[in-house]
Design a protein around this nucleic acid. Structure first.
Length: 117
RNA sequence: UGAGCAGACUAUACGGCAGCGGAAACGAUCAUGUUUACGAGGAAAGUCCGGGCAUCACAGAGCAGGGUAACUGAUAACAUCAGCCGGAGGCGACUCCCGGGCAAGUGCAACAGAAAAUAAACCGCCUGCUUUUGCAGGUAAGGGUGGAAUGGUGAGGUAAGAGCUCACCGGGGUACAGGUAACUGUACCGCCGUGUAAACCCUAUCCGAUGCAACGCCUAUUGGUACUCUUAUAUCAACAUUUGCUCGAUGGAUAUAUGAGUAAUGGCGGCUGGAGCCUGCGGGCGACUGCAGGCCUAGAUAAAUUGCCGUACACGACAGAACCCGGCUUAUCGGUCCGCUCACAAA
RNA sequence: GGCGCUAUAGCCAAGUGGUAAGGCGUGGGUCUGCAACACCCUGAUCCCCAGUUCAAAUCUGGGUGGCGCCU
């Protein structure tokens, strides 16, 4: 939790779903958008389709752990929503961490900050 | 040994590294750090009952509406639980049952059937008249319909029959005895009548409404928006408020103007020490309860119990607190303990 | 978290204890030289499981799905 704040109002969620860039994979879907502030915003969403309360909590936990582990490498100054898909609760957190570090980071940097650099 | 019945408990375990939540202590000062112990369930679920707590309304009464239903008790209370009565099932341990009243009233009972409930009589049976087809009277034994047909079986009796009479069975009433009571037993009378109250209803008894997004406190901005109150003026004479309605109670009511206050948003409290848990000794058949000692054991707000690795095995089910308790219902891989029953075998 | 409503044929639906009306559509037939129109026929585990009753779509209890309100 170095530079991150939680996103907890509905407005920003809807704004990001509409305007943000989306990156899709088997386990998760990521929506990203610049916010021009000295912190990152993080929202995790686990919908009804995933399963009961235990499964939803498990998915949220795994995603949060994966985010913390690659927080140091993240660029600062963006809002981000991670939506769990049905696979996410059966997978270990190391898989998601690896995915974030190897593939998603490059994509995020390209999509969001690519134009400036 | 096998097959069961009932009750109670448990819900992978241990270690390492990294992390989360609020709390306490120590340090530190507008950055927050260190240490310590603690941190989901038997159903946390469904929200089906009951209560606490809070607000609203209170001067009260009645009606409407809703719940409960053998009896006695337990309890804060209950649709729960215990004991017991009645009924049903099982060889048995034991289990199951929304179990008041259609002899207060009203309604309903399709089709079939003569008839579906003050009664009546299709085919029959018997007597009389007429005459070969009917009429009048008696009768409800037999037939068929239906879920249900005015007690059942046998004997006497008769023109034919019939609780018409008798015996036994079944049900009802009255009296007496036993039991706290539901109820049980005995004696006498007597056959007065189907089902349905999870149909309206009646009887007894209980219930005010809304739910922590209740409610209380603090506060930015905008704007005179909404609401409340005070004063003044004008109009009207029945109008408003008061839990769904009525009585009753309280206030005259509406519009305009002036002045004062409140609300929205966000935050904090409510929030966890409680009808609490454990142990021992008493009371009670039991549900439960009295006394003494000990313990503090989640409180988040996009929402904490984790991630990864290793070891073991039976390879891990259903499932995540959101104000709090007592029950019920539903989901659930399995395991352990105590008691009891039946069958077989051995001593 | 709390409080409510609802489920009937492929679709829209009526039905307050006595064996489920109707409309659109599907399929078949009649009509026609062939079609359309018209007419006739056709089809239901009344969301699921128990109970009350002679009898349940309907009454009672439990479950499942869908929808709404407070925010």
């Amino acid at each position: 939790m170095l530079y991150t704040k939680k996103i907890n109002n509905n407005k920003t969620f809807n704004y990001l779903y509409k305007k943000g860039k989306c990156i899709v994979s088997r386990n998760i879907v990521i929506y990203v958008k610049k916010n021009k502030r000295p912190w990152n915003g993080l929202g995790i969403s686990a919908g009804k389709k995933i399963g009961n309360a235990v499964m939803r909590n498990r998915a949220k936990r795994v995603i949060r752990q994966a985010y913390y582990e690659c927080e140091k490498d993240m660029p600062i100054g963006m809002d981000m929503i991670i939506v769990a898909r049905k696979n996410a609760c059966f997978v270990k957190s190391t898989e998601i961490t690896a995915y974030l570090k190897e593939k998603a980071l490059d994509m995020i940097i390209k999509e969001v900050f690519g134009e400036e650099k």
